[in-house]
Amino acid sequence: MKKRKRLQCKDRNLGTFLLSLPTLIWYLIFCYLPMFGIVIAFKRYKPLPGKGFISSLLERSPWVGFDNFRYLFINPQMFFTVRNTIAYNLAFLFVDTVLPVTLAIMLSYVYSKKLSMAVQTAAMLPHFLSWVVVSYFLYAFLSTDRGLFNNFLINIGSDPVRWYQNPSVWPAILIITHTWKAYGYALVMYMAYITAIDQELYDSAIVDGAGVLQMIRYITLPMLRPIILVLLILNLGNILNTDFGLFYQATRNSGSILSSTQTIDVYTYKALMENANYGYSAAASLIQNTVGCFMIIIANYVAKKINPAEGII
């Protein structure tokens, strides 16, 4: 009997392993093997004609130590670049949490399931659009001569606004654009969690005389708190990373608004294109991911201290 159980367990484990094998191979090839490229951050990489990546990296690229990191820290543009990156990510963290949760709770009280599904579908559609397409949509609204907003201003007797030369308006534009494109995914996720909440909890609350706001406060939000916390912790890992398409494509790489739109990813990309130094980008990426890793560990540790049952692991 024990031998039969061992064989059944072995077969089950083998099936699970074979099922997960493609994913393991994918992560090995695309996530772990490229980590070897971290050494570029400590070298001045020079791709040579007729030489492969490994040969160019190991044989002809001199070690420069921490020079690539030093360049990032002493550059005068890094102050507002890091400031923009952190400020935008904090704003995204707040908006990406509050708005989807609020809309998900509101939709959960919509009696028409067709209407609820239609709203969720409409919210998800922007998520599948590329930033190139979104940038053209944005340009159709903000173009100086043919943009929808400027045409409206002209029709009411106001002067047109040069949106792509006015850095003060872009923080709001970028936050709204990001929210429009990203909130649908989180909305559907929160709706799934709300749907999974035991209906008997709400029925008991109604019997006890609880109102809608009380049920949201004492039932819905506490049940959503674990997934909200997990998403917040994971998003903190990207505190120094930004969506390159949003800050480069949507802004049409306008040099007049760099003080409000330049982030670390955009800055390192421009440094790579202008100086052809791959070490700058590799050094910036190493810093971003290292800080993100520590942010996740610290945030998860704090969450576990507050409530051992919550957090990632």
Results as ranks from 00 to 15, higher is better:
Tyr248Pro: 00
Gln8Glu: 15
Cys9Arg: 10
Val207Lys: 08
Pro167Ala: 11
Leu229Arg: 01
Ala182His: 06
Gly147Trp: 13
Ile312Phe: 12
Lys5Glu: 12
Asn75Val: 01
Ile175Asp: 06
Met78Val: 14
Leu58Phe: 11
Gln120Leu: 15
Gly157Asn: 03
Leu213Lys: 08
Tyr109Ile: 02
Ala87Glu: 12
Phe73Asn: 07
Trp26Gly: 15
Arg83Trp: 15
Pro308Phe: 13
Asn151Met: 12
Ile40Val: 05
Ala309Glu: 13
Gln249Tyr: 14
Asn307His: 01
Gln288Gly: 06
Tyr27Ala: 13
Gly147Gln: 05
Tyr248Glu: 05
Trp131Gln: 06
Trp170Leu: 05
Met191Leu: 13
Val64Glu: 01
Ile194Ser: 00
Thr23Lys: 02
Leu272Tyr: 06
Ser130Glu: 10
Asp145Arg: 14
Met117Cys: 13
Tyr267Ala: 02
Leu18Val: 14
Leu103Val: 15
Gln199Asn: 10
Gly65Arg: 00
Tyr218Ser: 14
Tyr190Ile: 00
Tyr278Trp: 11
Phe17Trp: 02
Ala172Lys: 04
Ala118Ser: 11
Lys43Cys: 08
Asp203Arg: 01
Tyr71Trp: 12
Met1Tyr: 09
Pro308Gly: 11
Ile194Met: 03
Ala309Asn: 14
Val132Ala: 04
Tyr136Val: 13
Leu240Ala: 04
Leu19Ser: 11
Val207Met: 15
Met215Gly: 05
Ile216Gln: 12
Pro226Tyr: 12
Trp163Met: 04
Pro49Cys: 04
Asn75Ala: 03
Ser259Cys: 14
Met78Pro: 03
Met1Cys: 07
Asn155Thr: 14
Thr179Gln: 11
Ser281Ile: 07
Leu138Asp: 02
Ile105Lys: 09
Ser260Thr: 01
Ser20Asp: 05
Val212Lys: 13
Ile239Gln: 00
Lys51Gly: 11
Gln249Phe: 13
Glu310Ala: 13
Pro160Glu: 08
Val110Pro: 03
Tyr267Arg: 00
Ser260Trp: 02
Phe141Glu: 01
Leu90His: 07
Leu90Gln: 07
Leu19Ala: 15
Pro34Ala: 00
Met215Trp: 07
Ser259Gly: 09
Lys46Glu: 15
Asn151Ile: 14
Leu18Gly: 10
Met124His: 01
Lys5Met: 07
Met1Thr: 10
Leu246Phe: 11
Pro222Ser: 10
Leu221Tyr: 09
Ile197Cys: 07
Ala299Ser: 10
Phe30Pro: 03
Trp63Leu: 12
Ile228Met: 09
Ala196Pro: 00
Thr195Ala: 05
Arg70Trp: 12
Leu57Ala: 05
Ser254Asn: 03
Pro171Met: 13
Ser256Asn: 10
Glu200Trp: 04
Tyr193Phe: 14
Ala104Glu: 09
Leu99Pro: 08
Ser256Thr: 07
Pro49Thr: 04
Phe247His: 01
Lys270Ala: 10
Pro62Cys: 09
Asn275Pro: 00
Gly50Leu: 07
Asn84Ile: 11
Pro126Val: 09
Met295Trp: 03
Ile306Arg: 02
Ile239His: 00
Asn277Arg: 04
Ile206His: 13
Ala276Tyr: 12
Ser116Asp: 15
Leu72Val: 02
Ile239Arg: 00
Pro171Trp: 07
Ser260Tyr: 03
Asp265Cys: 06
Leu21Gly: 06
Asn89Leu: 12
